[in-house]
């Protein structure tokens, strides 16, 4: 290897050696199960005996896209996830901005407060929401007690309850992604825009948004993927008739033990998530490149 003379230090064997454990871990824990699952999704399922039969068929995929029950679940999942992501971005940006720019001594408390919801598991939190939003829950009891309403508001077991629930889970991820990026933007750059005649909205559009874009992308991707795969929140807050993808998949695997179909839905969910994420990123990056 006499040709490779100027190799920067630490880029040869050392780097490979350092990367190896993580690579092997990911290969075993992620790609192996995915590979097996994909293979399963091409198998057949015999309902009478509840067993999987070796085959090579796309029947499971066809079944998904021809049954409105499942396509509706996919549509609901996408709709809820998009809504959640947009709301998280709109609500999260100002919050992240304040956290990044504050000079308060209590900044670290603010950050902890943001992350605090994540200290509680999804199911526990969802149970909490049930207490708040149920027919005899805190909100309805208060409103009825005050005489504002006579019948309890239907909040639990609606799409809205699920959306509110997932937003609460995902907001910290959005806020932290944005905050770290905004913190890296020199405050003087914003002031420079002001002094050159840009009012706050223009400054935001022309300076803050493009500079915060890496954080915006990271935050939206994270939020969107988490929403697409949300399980506990839709399951507990959505009620029996509300369908999102993750509970449906879980149902196929455990209740029906239909591994081939469960595998197929899992792959569809993954592909759709990946596809939408990529498209959104391309759009955002193209628009800000102008």
């Amino acid at each position: 290897m006499s040709l490779v003379v100027d190799k920067p230090r630490g880029q040869g064997w050392t780097a490979s050696a350092l990367l190896a454990p993580a690579t092997i871990f990911i290969a075993i824990s992620l790609f192996a199960p995915l590979g097996i699952l994909f293979r399963y999704s091409l198998n057949e399922f015999v309902p009478s005996t509840k067993t999987m039969v070796e085959a090579l068929t796309v029947a499971n995929y066809v079944k998904f896209f021809t049954d409105p029950y499942y396509t509706a679940a996919l549509a609901t999942t996408i709709k809820v996830s998009l809504l959640v992501t947009v709301v998280c971005l709109i609500v999260g940006f100002p919050l992240a901005y304040v956290m990044a720019r504050t000079q308060s001594r209590f900044k670290h408390l603010l950050i902890i407060a943001t992350v605090l919801p994540l200290f509680v598991g999804n199911s526990v939190r969802a149970a909490g929401w049930m207490v708040v939003f149920g027919n005899k829950g805190f909100v309805n009891a208060s409103l009825m007690g005050l005489g504002v309403i006579s019948k309890p508001l239907e909040i639990m077991f609606t799409e809205n309850a699920v959306i509110i629930g997932i937003i609460a889970v995902n907001l910290p991820f959005m806020v932290l992604s944005l905050q770290s990026v905004i913190e890296g933007i020199d405050r003087a750059v914003e002031e420079a825009a002001f002094s050159l005649g840009a009012p706050p909205a223009t400054m935001f559009r022309r300076v803050l948004w493009p500079l915060a874009l890496p954080g915006i992308l990271a935050g939206t991707i994270l939020t969107f993927i988490l929403a697409m795969n949300a399980y506990a929140t839709p399951f507990l807050l959505g009620g029996p008739t509300f369908k999102m993808m993750a509970p449906v998949i879980y149902n196929e695997f455990t209740q029906k033990t239909n591994w081939p179909f469960g595998g197929a839905i899992a792959f569809i969910l993954m592909s759709v998530t990946l596809g939408l994420t990529l498209i959104a990123n391309l759009l955002i990056q193209r628009r800000s490149a102008r």
């Binding site: 003087a188 750059v189 002031e191 420079a192 825009a193 500079l211």
Partner: peptide, 8 residues
């Protein structure tokens, strides 16, 4: 500005 604050 002292840091120039150019739009990067």
């Amino acid at each position: 500005f002292q840091s120039y604050a150019l739009f990067p």
